[in-house]
């Protein structure tokens, strides 16, 4: 009986608090993505259009470690018995990636372009019991700070 009580309180704590935190995180991600939408970001090697005088080129990174809650872990454990999409982990990796890219963009405000973006995912704290603790995402790219070109073609952000 005691086991069940502990389990139920943990799972409802995980569900309600986890859901609230996730909602808040998604809200923050959406507003920040909207705010940073004008920053030119591609994963191609060459910069877009022509650049003026290049002042600085640097490697920029952003990372995020996001963890699952108790409810998601149990739900994923159940889903693994039956097969199919582990829906509770999908939001986890989605949030982690978007957060990492946002942090990368925020770390180089004022950059003209961010090019050659690469994203790496790894799961850390994967303990003995093979239960996932959290997922880490590293985003890295090259930021170019350049003056506007003198005349002619230019990469315009609309």
């Amino acid at each position: 009986m005691f086991d069940i009580a502990v389990f139920l309180s943990l799972i409802s704590l995980g569900y309600f608090v986890g859901r609230y935190l996730e909602k808040r995180h998604y809200h923050s991600i959406n507003t920040r993505e909207q705010a940073l939408i004008k920053v030119i970001t591609t994963n191609t090697k060459r910069p877009l259009g022509t650049l003026g005088k290049v002042n600085k080129v640097e490697l920029v990174t952003g990372n995020a470690v996001i963890s699952v809650d108790y409810f998601k872990r149990v739900a994923a454990g159940l889903r693994k018995l039956f097969g199919g999409n582990l829906t509770t982990y999908e939001t986890l990796v989605d949030r982690a990636r978007r957060e990492a890219i946002l942090r990368l963009k925020e770390s180089c405000q004022g950059a003209t372009q961010i090019i050659n973006l690469r994203i790496e995912t790894s799961s850390i704290s994967q303990g003995k019991s093979n239960q996932i603790g959290s997922v880490e995402v590293l985003a890295y790219a090259t930021a170019i700070y350049a003056d506007a070109p003198q005349a002619g073609k230019q990469a315009t952000a609309e």
Partner: peptide
Amino acid sequence: IVSGSTVRAKHA
């Protein structure tokens, strides 16, 4: 940038 992701498992 656009992305697509999925997490899937096979049954036990």
